[in-house]
Amino acid sequence: MSTVTHSSTGGSSAVASGGAWQNEARRVARRIRARVLELTILQNGCYLSQALSSAEVLATLYTKILKLEDLTEPLPSPPFTGVPGSERRSPSGGRFHGEQAENRDRFLISPAHYAVAIYAALESVGRLAEGELESFNTDGSTLEMIGAEHSPGFELTTGSFGQALSQSGGIAFARRLRGDTGRTIVFMSDGELEEGQTWEGVQAAAFFKLDKLVLFVDVNGQQVDGLTKDIMNVEPINSRFDAFGWDVAVVDGHDVAAINEAVEAKEQNGKPLVVLAYTDTAKDMPYLNDRKPNLHYVRAKTEEDKTAFAAALAELQEEDS
């Protein structure tokens, strides 16, 4: 077995002993949660639980793991100009990751409904201009609820679901032929492991020995219809990837040090790497635990909900100040 398990080092002692990047990653994670919760309150509904579960993974990627070109200044989100076609080209959302270069990473996002978490992450690390999130999910904005190739942080439209790994495998293969030294890093949700195309992509990446391909999976155990174990069980995920010939790391998805360590330990051995980040869809909002597993899309349904959401937002914002 090539599975490596990284246990959590969380708690106050970890915060005290962590270096500057760990503290910054935790700050970004809190801000992601706060910004998405704020939008959930303002618009009475959002993909909140996805942000709650993935915040540390995205924060660690953007503050530590990803090697991206620096931007001279945060970018505004351009207005939506229409459906892209041969005569109309929308600016790629990938430009928020800087210019593509042979020694830089490509970061590709698969679950388009995680878009609001991506936007919040980009804003929190200074790649999306402050104030742009105010146009989220409004007519004429590229900050769409479901991200597309013109949305900030996205350079792919990943189809109905589960297509980005196949696309990313092709990109990683092309980059190797071109002699690029940068990695191709992909972010997915565990619900996408129910899709057959995902496993075709897994098989192909192993066959072509794409060891500069790194996949992060937010294993939060839920999908639109309920718990993944009840709808279409995908466990044991680690042994499945191992059987296909991948290196596998299993981590606490809220432990920034463990997330980073999983990538730093990677050897160029002809195997792609998957980091299975096990997470909680009610992280920092325990009030939502009573709603599980119906957390795919979250809105305040009662006055009690509104009060609880406002209290959680105030706490997150206080921690971030």
Rank of each mutant, 00 (worst) to 15 (best):
G45M: 05
G45Q: 05
G45H: 04
G45D: 07
C46Q: 10
Y47D: 02
Y47G: 01
Y47K: 01
Y47C: 02
Y47L: 02
L48W: 01
S49Y: 00
S49F: 00
S49H: 01
Q50S: 15
Q50C: 04
A51Q: 10
A51I: 11
A51L: 10
A51P: 02
A51F: 08
A51C: 08
L52Y: 06
L52S: 05
S53E: 00
S53C: 01
S53V: 00
S53T: 01
S54G: 06
A55E: 05
A55C: 15
A55G: 05
E56N: 03
E56K: 00
E56I: 07
E56H: 02
V57S: 12
V57L: 15
V57T: 15
V57K: 03
A59E: 02
A59I: 10
A59Q: 03
A59L: 08
A59H: 00
A59D: 03
T60M: 06
T60Y: 01
T60D: 04
L61D: 12
L61Q: 14
L61A: 09
L61T: 08
L61Y: 12
Y62T: 03
T63L: 11
T63D: 06
K64A: 14
K64G: 13
K64N: 10
K64M: 13
K64T: 13
K64P: 00
K64R: 15
I65V: 15
I65C: 07
I65P: 07
L66R: 01
L66E: 07
L66M: 08
L66D: 06
L66Q: 05
L66W: 03
L66C: 07
K67N: 15
K67Y: 05
K67V: 12
K67A: 13
L68C: 08
L68I: 06
L68R: 08
E69N: 13
D70H: 13
D70K: 14
T72N: 14
T72R: 13
T72H: 12
T72F: 07
T72P: 10
T72Y: 09
T72G: 11
E73G: 00
E73P: 00
E73H: 14
E73D: 09
E73I: 03
P74V: 08
L75M: 13
L75T: 04
P76K: 11
P76V: 10
P76S: 14
P76R: 12
S77F: 01
S77L: 03
P79I: 02
P79M: 08
P79Q: 12
F80I: 00
F80S: 11
T81L: 09
T81S: 13
T81K: 14
T81I: 04
G82M: 03
G82Q: 05
G82H: 03
G82S: 06
G82A: 07
V83R: 15
V83K: 14
P84Y: 10
P84R: 12
P84W: 10
P84V: 04
P84G: 09
P84K: 09
G85L: 00
G85Y: 04
G85N: 15
G85A: 10
S86A: 14
R88W: 02
R89C: 04
R89W: 12
R89T: 15
S90E: 15
S90Y: 01
S90A: 13
P91C: 09
P91A: 09
S92T: 15
S92G: 09
G93K: 05
G93R: 05
G94P: 06
G94S: 10
G94R: 05
R95A: 11
R95Q: 14
F96I: 02
F96K: 02
F96A: 02
G98V: 09
G98M: 08
G98F: 11
